[in-house]
C-alpha cells in the first residue's frame, strides 16, 4: 500500500510537467496581448511596445519558459501581469469560496441522491423509480444557469428568503452567514450532481440487489433497511464513490457559470477573467492547480476503495 502511494505521488511530477509545457505553449500560441489590457484603448503602438518590453513579453518564448519553470520549481507561481498581485495571493483569495461551495454542494447532493438512488432501485419499475429517473433526466438536461435563475426568482425575488448573490467566508462571517449565502448556489450546482449520483446509485444497487448474498440475507430475515444500506449499498459503493470524487474535481474546475450567476469570487471566475485578459501567470497557475486537484482527488478515490471494499488491495 505504502509503495503504491509513493508511486502514485511520484507519478504526479511527470503529469504536472507535461501539463505545464502544454499550457505554456498553448497560451503563447493564442492571440492576445496583456500589455493592451494594461495600457487601455488610447495607448499608441510605441507605448504598448514599451510596456511589453518592461513586462518581459518580448523575450524569446524559450527564455520566458525557462524563467517561469525556474520560479515554479521554487514554489513561485509568479505575479499577475495585469494587477501586479502575486498569483499565490489571488489563488488563496479565490480558492476557498470555490472549495467551500463545492463541499456544500457535494454534501447536499450525496445526502439527497444516495437515498433517492437506493429507493429507486428498491422500488424498481414503480412510480418512485420513474420519478427519480425523470428528475435525473431533467437534472442533466436543464442548464445550470437556468436552474440558478429559477431559484433566484423563487427564493430571492418572490419569496425574499435568501439573498440573490454574494459569498460569506465561514471563518470570517460565521457558518450561519455562509449557509445563508451559499445555500442557493450549492442547491443549483447540486441539481446536476443529484441527478448523476442518483442514477449511478440506482444502477449499482440494481446490479447488487440481484446477487446471491442479498437473497441469502433476506432469507435469513435481516431487516430490509439493513439489507439495503449495510449489504447492498456498501457493495455498490465503488462506482458511486468514483462519481462523487470526479464530481468534486469537476466542481472545483467547472463552476464558473454558477460563480457568475451568484457573484461568488471563486477560481472559476478568476480563470475566465485571466483568460480574457491573457494574464499568463494566472492561467498557467490555475490549470496546474486544477490538474493537481484531479490527480489528488483520483488518488483519494482509489484509496477509499479499500475502505469500502476490503477485497481491493494495492
Amino acid at each position: 500500500m505504502l509503495g503504491y502511494l509513493i508511486r502514485r505521488v511520484l507519478a504526479i511530477i511527470p503529469v504536472m510537467l507535461i501539463v505545464a509545457i502544454f499550457v505554456f505553449l498553448l497560451l503563447r500560441l493564442t492571440p492576445g496581448d496583456p500589455a493592451a489590457i494594461i495600457a487601455g484603448d488610447m495607448a499608441t503602438p510605441e507605448q504598448l511596445e514599451r510596456i511589453r518590453e518592461a513586462m518581459g513579453l518580448n523575450q524569446p518564448i524559450h527564455t520566458q519558459f525557462i524563467s517561469w519553470m525556474g520560479r515554479l520549481l521554487q514554489g513561485d507561481l509568479g505575479t499577475s501581469l495585469i494587477s501586479g498581485t502575486p498569483v499565490i495571493t489571488m489563488v488563496g483569495q479565490r480558492m476557498f469560496p470555490t472549495i467551500n461551495i463545492a463541499l456544500l454542494t457535494i454534501v447536499i447532493a450525496v445526502a439527497i441522491a444516495v437515498p433517492m438512488g437506493v429507493l429507486a432501485a428498491w422500488r424498481h419499475r414503480s412510480w418512485v423509480d420513474y420519478a427519480v429517473m425523470s428528475f435525473s433526466v431533467m437534472g442533466f438536461s436543464v442548464p445550470v444557469f437556468v436552474i440558478g435563475y429559477i431559484f433566484i426568482l423563487v427564493f430571492s425575488i418572490t419569496l425574499g428568503w435568501l439573498p440573490v448573490q454574494g459569498y460569506a467566508a465561514p471563518a470570517e462571517k460565521g457558518f450561519g452567514e455562509f449557509l445563508y449565502r451559499g445555500i442557493l448556489p450549492a442547491l443549483t450546482l447540486a441539481t446536476i450532481y443529484i441527478a448523476l449520483i442518483a442514477r449511478m446509485t440506482r444502477a449499482s444497487m440494481l446490479e447488487v440487489l440481484g446477487e446471491d448474498y442479498i437473497r441469502t440475507a433476506r432469507a435469513k430475515g435481516v431487516k430490509e433497511s439493513r439489507v439495503l444500506f449495510r449489504h447492498a449499498l456498501r457493495n455498490a459503493a465503488v462506482p458511486i464513490l468514483t462519481v462523487i470524487g470526479t464530481g468534486f474535481a469537476l466542481l472545483i474546475s467547472g463552476v464558473v457559470v454558477t460563480e457568475s450567476v451568484f457573484n461568488i469570487p471563486g477560481i472559476g471566475r478568476l480563470t475566465v477573467d485571466a483568460i480574457l485578459a491573457r494574464d499568463y501567470p494566472v492561467i498557467q497557475a490555475m490549470i496546474l492547480i486544477t490538474s493537481a486537484t484531479y490527480v489528488v482527488v483520483n488518488l483519494i478515490i482509489d484509496i477509499s476503495y479499500t475502505i469500502f471494499d476490503p477485497r481491493i488491495r494495492y
Binding site: 435563475y149 425575488i157 439573498p163 440573490v164 457568475s260
Partner: peptide, 14 residues
Amino acid sequence: PDASTAINALLGDE
C-alpha cells in the same frame, strides 16, 4: 460579471 445578478441584487436591496 452577470448583468441579471446585479439587477436582482439591486431589486433585493443588496
